[in-house]
Write a protein that binds this DNA or RNA. Structure first.
Lengths: 212, 212
DNA sequence: TAGATTGTTAATCGATTAACAATC
DNA sequence: TAGATTGTTAATCGATTAACAATC
């Protein structure tokens, strides 16, 4: 069992993929899985998989056999902090905000307790409220995560508010580079940038170049 | 003006960010910008910025002055292939599919011509059609990009269809590892994985660890 | 000219891959 | 035992950063 000081961002990004493979195997009642099998499914290198798992796993894999699916799954979930869900709120109840509010793909890792919008027409006062109620709800419910799903131009303002209200992490879906204080975690979900990369890949694929 | 054989994936990911900074500067009628300025806004290293730009820019930056904003913008857009938009279709007209169909953040880089769903109730036959019409539209309109916004379990099936119909690139929003032939470009937009990373960052931030 | 900033070459750093002894 | 697969140590590869001469 390896336990170096700190996992790299590159490794961290692969962990959710491993978890997904494991969940699938578990559903099929597979008991053990080798690094090679995992690697093949994800088109990765088996040595890399083993190295990544060494960070995560509290128990060694068994030489000649592999890793116990159930055990490894649990270790991965523990490591990623997915045991109990975290509360979050969404700012912006447009189409994207609504899609996120009702998205079922997050499993039980996040609990989106409310969305907020300036536009009262979009508020049902059940799960969607006027922004004026945001501060109160963040504070009384101790919400740590704010999801920004407002138009580009409002994003920084909304972000500043969230920070002021004590939000610890921002998940930004607006296509802007927003700025946060050093002690606030920022994760950009930049669809527009992502698209640019996809388009470039398509273009270059025609010319037989490749990216990982 | 540098022009090595192939840009790295890491550099490629930064390019859309540069473009965004440039667009903002141009709006403010700024004529020249230095690598340091760009780097500061994005919390990057100026040398790295210059190296990245060397790939993209057809004209050298001016020592002592910087890069001409307008020129550099154009070069970046050219490089990323953003001059003219590409046609795409969406499979799955649920909340996410609809959000993407109406998303305005893509600028003019992509032209989503239609969405498809199995559920006839979701079809308006204006922009949303029954999947049975998919093959025909892909072929007659020569669509290259398919966006998958269906539930996890249907994703692979839908993907196979798209590939069969001649789609060149898949932008997958379903939280599964789908498999495509080598000549098809696949870009996963894995919100659930992204969330896991965010949660891990928050957790570790409390313990004063850091990721880039 | 002096100051600022460039592009390039070299040094460093980190991540991926290879080699291999250990072991189920 | 033989075969498979592990975890670790060393080698390679690539990306980031530093140093610096060139030049607007």
């Amino acid at each position: 069992m390896g336990d170096k000081s700190n996992i790299s961002a590159a490794s961290l990004k692969r962990l959710p993929q491993y978890l997904r493979v494991l969940k699938e195997k578990q559903k099929q009642n597979v008991e053990f899985i080798s690094s090679t099998t995992i690697a093949n499914e994800l088109k990765l290198n088996p040595i890399q998989v083993r190295k990544d798992l060494a960070f995560v796993s509290k128990t060694d894999g068994k030489p000649g056999v592999g890793f116990e699916v159930r055990e490894l799954m649990k270790n991965l979930e523990d490591f990623l902090g997915l045991k109990n869900s975290v509360d979050a709120i969404i700012v912006g109840a447009g189409r994207l905000g609504h899609a996120l509010l009702n998205y079922t793909g997050f499993e039980n890792n996040i609990n989106i307790i409310a969305a907020f919008d300036f536009d009262t027409n979009k508020c049902d006062n059940d799960r969607v409220f006027n922004v004026s109620k945001m501060e109160n709800i963040i504070n009384t419910k101790n919400v740590d995560i704010g999801i920004i799903a407002v138009p580009r131009l409002e994003a920084q303002k909304v972000c500043n508010q969230l920070v002021e209200y004590g939000i610890k992490a921002i998940w930004n879906f607006a296509p802007v580079n927003i700025i946060v204080p050093d002690d606030v975690v920022l994760k950009n979900e930049d669809l527009s940038a992502s698209l640019s990369i996809l388009l470039k890949m398509v273009e270059d694929r025609s010319n037989k170049k490749a990216y990982k």
